[in-house]
């Protein structure tokens, strides 16, 4: 990718409408949503063929929490943010990991990605 500030982004989200809209927002921002999955086994496989710069992961996947997967992302130094409808206090033990609160605006998504990749947010 020619643009230094355009990133490949992985999405873990089990709500299809939210995943589709998030992809659209990222696309509008000039990023590329390389893959969206809705369950943890699929997320694990995606991590094995890592082809993304950062990840946006939902906390609650049909009753299962994604914290174990989040630890693997940390182990592999993948920048990521939690996307959740829960309040920030529900996410414990992940100091420094940004949280994108649902419902979110495109601007909030831009800020989160910039924070993850430590660049200025794109408009």
């Amino acid at each position: 990718m020619s643009d230094r500030n355009a990133f490949k982004i992985f999405i873990l989200e089990d709500e299809p409408a939210l995943g589709i809209v998030l992809e659209d927002m990222l696309s509008d921002l000039g990023h590329e949503a390389v893959q969206t999955v809705g369950n943890l086994p699929a997320a694990q496989r995606a991590l094995e063929h890592r082809n993304f710069d950062c990840a946006l992961i939902d906390v609650n996947l049909g009753g299962e929490q994604s914290f174990a997967f989040a630890r693997k992302l940390i182990d592999q130094s993948v920048p990521f943010a939690f996307v959740t409808g829960y309040s920030a206090s529900a996410v414990v033990g992940f100091k420094g990991v940004p949280i994108l609160q649902k419902p979110y605006t495109q601007e909030q998504v831009a800020t989160t990605i910039a924070q993850l990749m430590q660049v200025r947010p794109r408009q």
Binding site: E13, D14, P16, I20, G38
Partner: peptide, 15 residues
């Protein structure tokens, strides 16, 4: 379209 995408992805929670 959005509708087709919804149909295809609605069961993403099931591996």
């Amino acid at each position: 379209g959005f509708g087709t995408k919804l149909i295809q992805r609605s069961f993403g929670y099931d591996p």
